[in-house]
Amino acid sequence: MNGSVSLRSSPVLLFNMQNRTTSSLRSAIATVLLLVAASPAWSDDLSDARLRASNGDHAEAIRLFERHLQTARPSASVYYELGGAAKKSSNPALAALNFRRALILDPLFDLARKDLVETNLALGVSSDFTDWKTGVASKVPLNPILLTGVVLFWLGLFILVTGFHSRTRRFWDVGLISIGAVLIALAWVCDPRVNLIRQRFIMSPQGCEVFNTPVENSEKVTKLPQGSVVTAISERGRWIYGQLPGGARGWFLSEGLESVIPTK
């Protein structure tokens, strides 16, 4: 047989193709089939979670929402519903974290913003929406901005090239390239998934103590309550050097902190 394998021996071997071109195609088909096969499980967890939430079993709903999110693609809707279930089960910290995640995925999600403000009030922390980047993200859809910028940028570059060719310099080439570059930069800078990647959410009910130096018995700068958000600047073992909501900086331990953008 010299390495050739009967296709009947095992369905797995269906993808053991000698032709590399077709093997890639078959791998892609297999991936799609696997995704299709797995999707009812996601759907079941999500449906179950919604059912539990509607019946008032919020603890179980939270568990099912979280299990769904571990395997499925993230969704602002599901994070919002998870936050809602956490809010109803008297877990405002978990609710605030998930409302934040919903807002990161969809900065135009006004309902999530309103609920986050309410939850933050319950936690006694301020809602930090004063940043201009957050303001831009909450008003304009960033992906269309990015795509428009990319199209204009390339269009300008192609006009520039054809300008060389035809010796007819046009106003458009440099103008389009500049406008495109600005739009791309704007979408890049304002995307919460970029500028909030270093945010850490304080989940610990005891809050988080901030120190002057990365030593536990050093002078304490302040203590942040549960629900506060800090921005990590650098990390040293268990210690994180970061910026506090007021702009001050200090060291704090990573225990009890949760990345606002999940790291999985």
Binding site: P74, A76, W188, V194
Partner: peptide, 16 residues
């Protein structure tokens, strides 16, 4: 059941 919100991203990775 609560009405689902439609919209937003489906990935933590930015488009670019």
């Amino acid at each position: 059941m609560p009405l689902s919100h439609v919209g937003g991203e489906s990935s933590w990775m930015p488009l670019f």
